[in-house]
Measured scan of single mutants.
Amino acid sequence: EESQDIKALQKELEQFAKLLKQKRITLGYTQADVGLTLGVLFGKVFSQTTICRFEALQLSFKNMCKLRPLLQKWVEEAD
């Protein structure tokens, strides 16, 4: 059922947002740094506010889903 899928996805997004924040802090990056690095990787800079709202799960579900693969890549590249 679709609502189950969405619930599962939301849970996954929550966990990912936590992971992103932990990783960012561990590596000593600011939210603005992450936004700028996305610009380098994908040619589209994201504001500190956007990263902040992603981490706080304050973006729309659709936006969270759109941003996630980009931030996933950041997490992979950041090591």
Rank of each mutant, 00 (worst) to 15 (best):
78 A>T: 12
25 I>Q: 15
11 K>D: 14
31 Q>D: 10
67 L>G: 02
53 R>E: 11
20 L>M: 04
54 F>R: 02
27 L>T: 01
57 L>C: 12
64 M>Y: 00
65 C>W: 07
62 K>V: 08
77 E>P: 08
55 E>N: 04
74 W>Y: 01
38 L>T: 11
56 A>P: 06
54 F>E: 01
33 D>L: 03
67 L>E: 07
31 Q>I: 03
53 R>Q: 11
56 A>H: 08
42 F>H: 02
79 D>W: 00
13 L>K: 02
13 L>G: 02
25 I>Y: 15
50 T>N: 02
69 P>F: 04
11 K>S: 12
20 L>N: 12
18 K>N: 06
72 Q>D: 06
57 L>R: 08
63 N>D: 10
44 K>W: 00
17 A>C: 15
52 C>G: 15
61 F>G: 04
64 M>A: 08
3 S>G: 14
50 T>A: 07
68 R>Y: 15
54 F>G: 02
20 L>C: 10
51 I>L: 00
49 T>C: 03
55 E>L: 00
63 N>H: 09
6 I>N: 10
7 K>T: 09
30 T>P: 00
33 D>E: 10
48 Q>D: 14
65 C>A: 06
17 A>P: 06
57 L>G: 13
53 R>A: 11
73 K>Q: 10
57 L>T: 06
45 V>Q: 12
3 S>F: 10
64 M>F: 01
62 K>F: 10
32 A>S: 10
35 G>F: 03
44 K>S: 01
25 I>H: 15
28 G>N: 06
78 A>D: 01
75 V>F: 15
37 T>A: 15
27 L>Y: 06
38 L>Q: 04
29 Y>R: 06
15 Q>V: 10
22 Q>R: 10
5 D>K: 08
79 D>R: 09
62 K>P: 11
7 K>W: 09
76 E>P: 00
42 F>A: 12
52 C>A: 15
54 F>D: 05
70 L>V: 05
57 L>P: 12
39 G>D: 00
65 C>F: 14
25 I>R: 11
77 E>S: 06
69 P>G: 10
23 K>D: 04
39 G>S: 12
76 E>R: 07
49 T>S: 11
67 L>R: 03
25 I>W: 06
70 L>E: 00
40 V>D: 02
35 G>P: 05
23 K>Q: 08
61 F>A: 09
75 V>H: 11
24 R>A: 00
12 E>P: 04
59 L>Q: 00
7 K>M: 07
69 P>M: 02
65 C>K: 08
62 K>D: 14
57 L>M: 14
53 R>V: 00
47 S>W: 04
50 T>S: 03
56 A>K: 09
62 K>G: 09
31 Q>Y: 15
31 Q>V: 02
65 C>G: 02
13 L>T: 00
26 T>C: 11
41 L>S: 01
63 N>Y: 06
50 T>Y: 07
7 K>E: 11
11 K>F: 02
9 L>P: 14
65 C>E: 05
14 E>G: 11
72 Q>V: 06
63 N>G: 07
43 G>W: 02
35 G>Q: 11
24 R>G: 00
61 F>N: 07
50 T>E: 14
72 Q>W: 01
76 E>C: 11
9 L>D: 06
28 G>L: 01
77 E>H: 14
73 K>S: 02
31 Q>H: 10
32 A>F: 04
38 L>W: 08
58 Q>P: 00
46 F>A: 09
73 K>G: 06
15 Q>T: 07
69 P>L: 06
51 I>F: 04
69 P>I: 00
44 K>T: 14
29 Y>A: 05
77 E>Q: 14
28 G>V: 01
77 E>Y: 13
75 V>W: 01
71 L>E: 06
63 N>E: 14
34 V>L: 08
72 Q>G: 07
45 V>G: 09
47 S>K: 03
47 S>E: 08
67 L>Y: 02
56 A>C: 10
71 L>P: 11
35 G>H: 08
48 Q>A: 14
5 D>P: 13
49 T>D: 12
36 L>D: 13
12 E>A: 06
2 E>T: 06
9 L>G: 10
10 Q>T: 09
69 P>D: 00
31 Q>K: 03
30 T>E: 00
22 Q>M: 09
69 P>N: 12
